[in-house]
Simulated scan of single mutants.
Amino acid sequence: MVEIVSATVERWPVDGAFIISRGAKTHVDVIVCTVGDGTHVGRGEGTAIYYEGETAEDCAVAITAYRGPMDRDSVNRGMDSGAARNALDCALWDYEAKRTGVPVWQRAGLHAPVAVPTAFTISLNDPAQMEKDAQTAATRGFALLKCKLTGEGDRDRIAAVRRGAPHVRLIVDANESWAEMDVAAEAAALAALGVELIEQPIPHGHEEMLRGVQSPVPFCADESVHTRDDLNKLTGFSAVNVKLDKAGGLTEALALTAAARARGLRIMLGCMLGTSLGIAPAFLAAQGADWVDLDGALLLAKDRAGALAMRDGMLLPGNLWG
């Protein structure tokens, strides 16, 4: 019988610093859940949703405290969405694949995974540094850059990024920082610089702020959408950022993607900072997404052995998980 073997916290250094409007991160703490039956073992990784008050330590406690049946349906009914459930849900997917010899993508009814182009994040910084970082990323082969913004001086930042990487596609993440701004005017200014998507310009819980806003660039909900239950409250968004840590695992992420598409919403498949163990299940969910933003492991100083490979901005299938 499968049971939880362990739930541990690991710290992984960031390559330099990961800077957004809420602050800078120099490391990320991830929760690694291991399940097994004495013969077969499965692993899953989660990263705490810090803006929801989660910590890696609390997530590890929540996993070990789970006493329900050890199947994915029961776990998804018995635990709240978030990083703890993500780690356990993904560990169970991995275990099932190892026990049966049937890969996760096949068990989930997905197509065999192929390489996907991923965005690369340009951290929030002064325009000159963001220009330099964009040039470096473009030189590495990334054709899609995601720029972190702060609600002040954003047009100058994106103009600088465009100078550094004139031919890349651009998306931006305001991280809820445009509450006091003319969102429509800011969107129009960024559209003139070639920005094709704006992520979460307004604070979650205040989705009505986008009602009636006319924008030449689509808005993508991130903090506003964790699971399918959140779709009804969306106003003014035409895309959703699906993240396994928010959704609480691959099971809900796939269900959320299907429900969002049924409503005519476009899909970004995103991630938190984390290693390739956490990115691997998201890579399967990213097949067919409109935008893929799975650079969470690429921003670390090092990754796990057997990490997903990168080539010319393309994320390649691996055998670390599932």
Rank of each mutant, 00 (worst) to 15 (best):
R261T: 09
R261N: 12
R261A: 13
A262K: 15
A262M: 14
A262P: 12
R263T: 14
R263F: 11
R263A: 14
R263L: 15
G264T: 09
L265C: 04
L265I: 03
L265Q: 05
R266E: 14
R266W: 11
I267M: 11
I267S: 03
I267L: 14
M268N: 13
M268S: 13
M268D: 12
M268F: 14
M268G: 07
L269P: 11
G270F: 10
C271K: 00
C271G: 05
C271R: 06
C271D: 06
C271V: 07
M272S: 11
M272E: 04
M272D: 03
M272F: 11
M272V: 09
L273Q: 01
G274T: 05
G274K: 01
T275G: 03
S276L: 08
S276I: 06
S276C: 02
S276P: 00
L277D: 01
L277A: 05
G278A: 12
G278W: 03
G278H: 08
I279S: 05
A280R: 08
A280Y: 07
A280T: 08
A280E: 04
A280G: 09
P281F: 05
P281S: 08
A282N: 09
A282Y: 04
A282F: 06
A282W: 03
A282V: 01
F283H: 07
F283N: 00
F283M: 07
L284Q: 10
A285V: 09
A285E: 08
A286F: 05
A286P: 05
Q287W: 03
Q287M: 08
Q287N: 11
Q287F: 05
G288A: 13
G288M: 11
A289S: 14
D290W: 10
D290H: 13
D290P: 00
W291C: 04
W291T: 11
V292Y: 07
D293R: 02
D293G: 09
D293I: 06
L294D: 05
L294W: 04
L294I: 11
D295V: 04
D295W: 09
D295A: 09
G296Q: 02
A297Y: 10
A297F: 10
L298H: 12
L298S: 12
L298T: 11
